[in-house]
């Protein structure tokens, strides 16, 4: 009996060790291996620098650009474009979603236009926006705003229309006015859906930013990339790609944080 237990325990112990190695070591193993191969390829001259700079060179460039202030100042410009574009786009999406969601007349007026707008790929509008707004900041911000409107609009609108009528009945039976019903019942019930829309809006805004910044920019991440392309500085291009990825992660984190706060009443979040 004792022997059996000991044997079992020993067995289990070994199993756990193997398992944890596979879990923690394994997930990092392949990316690290890829980086190593890449570095080796660069050092041995298999990958020419004009095709792709070595990871060590990229890190060196990153530190250099951070210290010189080149990266922070251009990042700030890009960040401001996304922020202003989102502010306008999300604001418009909220207003239109409320109008269409809360009134039949508003729905008739707004929804057909929004559905038409949806069929036009945002980036296809770039030439038109350049004709209209020139090549300064305006077309870049306008493109981002235009892209961010729809996901916010659609999710708010359907969130409002999806309100639980039984809850509305209950609120009515307690004598709540129309505006109190909207404030206490309709809008909170549309919030989860609105936050999904917001998450879409953020990711599409960053996508549009990348393209919009290629329009004759004199500052920003896109400008850095364009410049680097002209001088075949692949190390700078890779640094900028990394920064775009980090922007995307940051946006996702932001919405997650807002969700965790705003939807604290949901059991799944309560349990965490």
């Amino acid at each position: 009996m004792t022997v059996l237990t000991a044997d079992r325990r020993g067995h289990a112990h070994g199993g756990v060790q193997k398992f944890s190695l596979a879990r923690f070591g394994g997930r990092w193993l392949s990316p690290v291996l890829l980086l190593l191969l890449w570095e080796l390829g660069s050092r041995s001259g298999l990958i020419p620098e004009r095709t792709l700079a070595a990871p060590s060179a990229v890190i060196g460039t990153l530190v250099e650009m951070l210290l010189s202030g080149e990266l922070p100042s251009n990042l700030l410009v890009s960040f401001a474009r996304v922020a202003v574009g989102l502010l306008i786009g999300v604001g418009l999406g909220l207003a239109l979603g409320l109008v269409a969601g809360l009134s039949r007349t508003g729905e008739l007026a707004v929804d057909p236009l929004m559905q038409i707008k949806r069929t036009i790929p945002v980036l296809a509008l770039t030439p038109l926006f350049i004709v209209w707004f020139g090549i300064g900041e305006t077309p870049k911000i306008a493109l981002i705003a235009f892209a961010a409107v729809f996901p916010v609009y659609l999710n708010l609108y359907s969130g409002i229309r999806g309100v639980d009528l039984r809850l509305l009945d209950a609120a009515k039976s307690f004598g709540l006015s129309r505006w109190e019903q909207i404030w206490h019942v309709v809008l909170p019930s549309a919030l989860p859906s609105l936050l999904v829309g917001l998450r879409y809006a953020l990711s599409v805004a960053i996508l549009v930013l990348v393209v919009a910044e290629q329009i004759n920019a004199s500052a920003g991440l896109g400008y850095l990339i364009n410049n680097a392309r002209d001088f075949m500085r692949t190390d700078i291009i890779v640094v900028c790609l990394m920064v775009y990825a980090i922007l995307g992660l940051g946006a996702d984190w932001l919405v997650r944080t807002v969700e965790a706060r705003a939807l604290i009443w949901r059991p799944s979040i309560v349990e965490q």
Partner: peptide, 24 residues
């Protein structure tokens, strides 16, 4: 002055219990 209790309690899930009672 009348009030209803429904079969399903119909509490607003986004308001804590005391705010549900205080609704309106």
């Amino acid at each position: 002055s009348r009030a209803v209790v429904f079969q399903d309690a119909r509490l607003l899930p986004w308001k804590p219990v005391w705010k549900n009672v205080a609704l309106g």
